[in-house]
Design a binder for these strands. Structure first.
Length: 569
RNA sequence: CGGGGCGUAGCUCAGUCUGGUUAGAGUACCUGGUUUGGGACCAGGGGGUCGAAGGUUCGAGUCCUUUCGCCCCGACCA
């Protein structure tokens, strides 16, 4: 491509609302433009990058036997009613009617569609397993899209679905997909981590997320300092605390604690480690057709992990409870405790099972219990892991400690089981001629988010630094002085030679000065720029490497070979 | 959903509080010239229903009402 003919509108200034490096540089360098909140247009450079990523995904999927298909973007709403997800997905599902007044949704993911696609077409265990995927636009009407391509409402996602006749085969495929996803991210040149995850709105049992490590990531992940363990904070677990603070010694007693409501105040008042206090978090728990106040009890040293709380209560969502709701219930904020708790349904964190020497609310204005022994309710109360792990907690798998880091979720793989096949009555006949629901897995990867992730991980103050596998063009030929006929002639020659050799090359033949064109090349981030300029009098050109910002002189005779070598390495 | 901010040239913004010729700057763009190793300079030029609708006024970018759009913060520890 000749730069004079390319549609690459670069600019010095980013949109005022751009915050992230990827958003700023992808806008400035002429990759994307915004059309509305969370909606972006892809310019030619972005389209090239997307195709590169898609090709790598396709190659790796083909290697493991997954087959590419394409489902309609507009999907009948009744499939979503059939699975029950039309409620669960809520407003994120964009719904509309066609001219015949039939309800449709824009697909945010395609479990239902894919199950419908195979049901009654694959009917025998002999035709299993099968793994089908597509790479296509998805739409989720997010309450608050942000960060450019990172969290758009419309985005490109690879979504894959596998169908199995037994769970062992699903386990096998799950591992195959994990390995394939890792391969893809490695090929893209990304630093990532595979972590255990919550299954969220999709449903299912085991799931893992592929996280690109970046400070700007929206997810917090806990990673072990010693072993491979990593988990999204929503799902992270820990082993029992090893260094336990010295326990306060006190007989069971009710203590006057006027206006002592927070954990800080309580621990300070009794001069104990918050570990020995019981924290109460009151939430309103929302179910499909009802809601109620639930009290969550934790150690004072822990925080409630809301996703775990949602799972423990099997709720659709949980929101804060307000004072009035608590008063209506008859509980006394600040002095709520788990002992003799009969006012509200409650969940107790498993770290409190059989806990002794605890200080907790006495369910009475201005009173707390000291020396409480929770083993008395261990038989009757509902315990669950609802605590968020803290930095420094012990790894659940080894003796390392957990540290926090930020990640961008670019992939998520699930063992779905029969959730959808049962709901949609998608069955096959097994060896005994008996009808069984498909056992499913689902595997997502955010293609447009990967574009942004590459830049989040690879940029400097001057712009993008594309990895070789993602670069829109491998080489940029830059003629320093467009009036120098010798320079132009060499540029033209090299340009056609590289094209001939199938190197993706752009030829900056614009009538601009050296600095202008260099800044532009740095902003866009081509891996290599061949500078044809002042060194030419010595028979040399220079190769500028974007990732190191170093310029190396190469003789005119050797430049073609040098570039071929660099672009293939 | 709750709270806040902003809509003026392709882009980044000033002007709005305190209404008053023809609405500005930088940048980008076009023409000509100079320059040619880090977004250079000189001269000339094109580009605006001031988000939209309604109202107040002799007069509205500016004041009032409505509305649309975009962005940010929040959705936690009893």
């Amino acid at each position: 491509m000749r730069r004079t003919q390319a549609f690459i509108p670069t600019s010095k200034e980013a949109p005022s609302d751009a915050q992230l490096a990827s958003h700023i540089f992808l806008s400035r360098a002429g990759f994307v433009t915004q059309s509305a909140a969370g909606l972006y247009n892809y310019l030619p450079l972005a389209k090239r990058v997307i195709k590169k990523i898609e090709n790598i995904v396709n190659e790796e999927m083909t290697k493991v036997g997954a087959q590419e298909v394409e489902l309609s973007f507009v999907t009948p709403a009744d499939l979503w009613e059939e699975s029950g997800r039309i409620e669960k997905f809520g407003k994120e599902l964009l719904r509309f009617k066609d001219r015949k007044d039939t309800q449709f949704v824009l697909a945010p993911t395609n479990e239902e569609m894919m199950v419908d696609f195979v049901r009654n077409r694959i009917t025998s265990y002999k035709n299993l397993p099968v793994n089908l995927y597509q790479i296509k636009t998805k739409f989720r009407d997010e309450a608050r899209p942000r960060f450019g391509l990172m969290r758009g409402r419309e985005f490109i996602m690879k979504d894959g679905y596998s169908f199995h006749s037994c769970s062992e085969d699903l386990d096998r495929e799950f591992d195959v997909m994990e390995a394939a996803y890792k391969k893809i991210l490695t090929r893209l040149g990304l630093d990532y981590r595979v972590v255990e995850a919550d299954s969220g709105a999709i449903g299912g049992s085991e799931s893992k997320e592929l996280m690109v490590i970046a400070d700007s990531g929206e997810d917090t992940i806990a990673v072990c300092s010693k072993c491979e363990y990593g988990a999204n904070i929503e799902a992270a677990t820990r082993s029992e605390r090893k260094e336990i603070p010295e326990a306060p010694e006190a007989e069971f007693n009710k203590f006057l604690t006027p206006n002592i409501k927070s954990i800080d105040e309580l621990a300070g008042f009794f001069k104990v480690d918050p570990y020995y206090t019981v924290k109460t978090v009151a939430k309103k728990v929302i179910y499909e057709d009802s809601e109620e106040i639930v009290l969550f009890f934790l150690r004072g040293s822990d925080n409630l992990q809301e996703v775990k709380a949602v799972n423990a209560t099997e709720a659709l969502d949980i929101v804060d409870a307000n004072e009035e709701e608590l008063q209506a219930l008859g509980v006394i904020p600040g002095f709520i405790g788990p002992l003799d708790q009969d006012k509200a349904k409650h969940v107790i964190d498993s770290s409190l099972k059989n806990a002794r020497n605890m200080i907790c609310g006495a369910n009475e204005q201005d009173y707390h219990f000291v020396g409480a022994d929770l083993s008395v309710i261990s038989e009757v109360a509902y315990f669950a892991d609802i605590a968020e792990v803290n930095a420094g907690d012990s790894c659940p798998h080894c003796d390392g400690e957990l540290n926090f880091t930020k990640g961008i979720e670019v992939g998520h793989i699930f063992k779905l089981g029969t959730t959808y096949s049962k709901a949609l009555k998608a069955e096959f006949l097994d060896e005994n001629g008996k009808a069984q629901p498909f056992i499913m897995g689902t595997y997502g990867m955010g293609i447009s988010r990967l574009v942004a992730s590459v830049i989040e991980q690879h940029h400097d103050e001057n712009g993008c630094i594309w990895t070789k596998s993602t670069a829109p063009y491998m080489v940029n030929i830059m003629v320093s002085n467009i009036k120098d006929e010798e320079q132009i002639a060499l540029g033209e020659k090299l340009y056609s030679e590289l094209q001939e050799a199938n190197v993706e090359v752009i030829f900056d033949d614009r009538k601009e000065r050296f600095g202008f064109k260099m800044k532009d090349a740095e902003l866009i981030g081509f891996p290599y720029t061949v500078i044809i300029g002042k060194e030419l009098v010595n028979g040399n050109v220079q190769v500028y490497e974007r990732s190191t910002t170093e310029k190396t002189a190469v003789s005119v005779e050797n430049i073609l070979g040098e570039i071929m070598e660099l672009s293939n390495s």
